[in-house]
Amino acid sequence: MATSVTLQRRSVLLQAVRSFFLSRRYLEVDTPVLLPLLIPESQIVPFCCEGRFLQTSPELCMKHLLARGCPRLFQLCHCFRRGESGRYHLPEFTMLEWYHAGWSYLELMAEVEELVRTLAGNPDDFPGLDRQGNLVREQRTVALHRPWSRMTVDAAFLEFAGIPAREALADGRFDEILVTEVEPNLGWEQPLFLYDYPVTLGSLARPKKDDPSLAERFELYICGIELGNGFSELVDPEEQRRRFEREIAMMTGRERQVVMPERFLASLAAMPETAGIALGFDRLLMLFSGAGTISEVVPLAAEEL
C-alpha cells in the first residue's frame, strides 16, 4: 500500500503535469471510460462489462474531439487491460495522453523532453532524482538535459541483436528480441527515443513520406523501461480502414465481437495532421520515486480491498 509520502509525491506529479500542459494552452479533457466499442487492436484484451468495454486507451475519444476542432488536448485517465500484470504492468493504470494538431512526431519528441525535464525541476520531492534533477537508478545516473538520444528501430536491432528489424519481424521474433535483447540496453545514459517502426507495427501511425515501409512512431525508454508511445497520427480514413481490417482478421475466434469503428473512421476525415502520445504516468512516478515496481506508487492495489 502507498504510504502518505508516496501519495504526496503522486499528487505533486499530477499537479505538475497539469501545470505543464495548461501553461502551454492545452485543454484538459475527461472522456468516457465505459465505451460501446474500441479501436481494434489485436494485442490488447479489454474488460467487458454488460455489452460495453472499459477503455484500454483514451485514443478513440480524444481523436473524436480533435476532429471536432480541439487542436491541443491532454488527459490523465485510468486505462484497463486484461491479463497485464507484472513489475511494470497493472490491469488498471494511469495514462497521460496528449495530442497536438499541426505537429509531427519530431516536435512531439522535443515536447516529451521538455515535459520530463520540467517535472524533474523540483528534485527534492523525489528520491529517484539527484540534486541536478537527473534520474538515479541501479547506481547509474541518467542525464535528463536535452537533447536526448535517438535511435532507429533498425539500428537498435542491428547493434544489440545483430539482426535487421525487418528480418526479426518476418521470423515472428520481433517482440521477443525487442524485449530480451534490445530494451534492456536503452536509455541508461540519457533517455532514448526508439523511432521509425516497421509500418505493420503502427496501426494508427502515419507512414514516412520517404519510406512507406516505416511508420512515424516512437517509444521513449528510460533505464530499459518503456515509458511512452507516440506517433504522427494516421488521418487517412481509407488507409486506416484497411489496417483495422487486418487487425480484425487477426482477432477472429476471440470471445468478443469486434466491430469496425465506422464513426471514428468518418470523423478521421475531419482530423488535422496531428501528433499524439500515451505515456505511462505510474511508470514515470516509479522512476522519480526510485521504486522497483509500479504497484508501489499507485494509491491502492485491488488486492488490498
Binding site: S85, D175, T180, S203
Partner: peptide, 14 residues
Amino acid sequence: FEFSKPGKGQALYR
C-alpha cells in the same frame, strides 16, 4: 518469472 509486453506488441511470459 517476468511479464513483458512491448507497446502495441504481444504479451511475453519469460
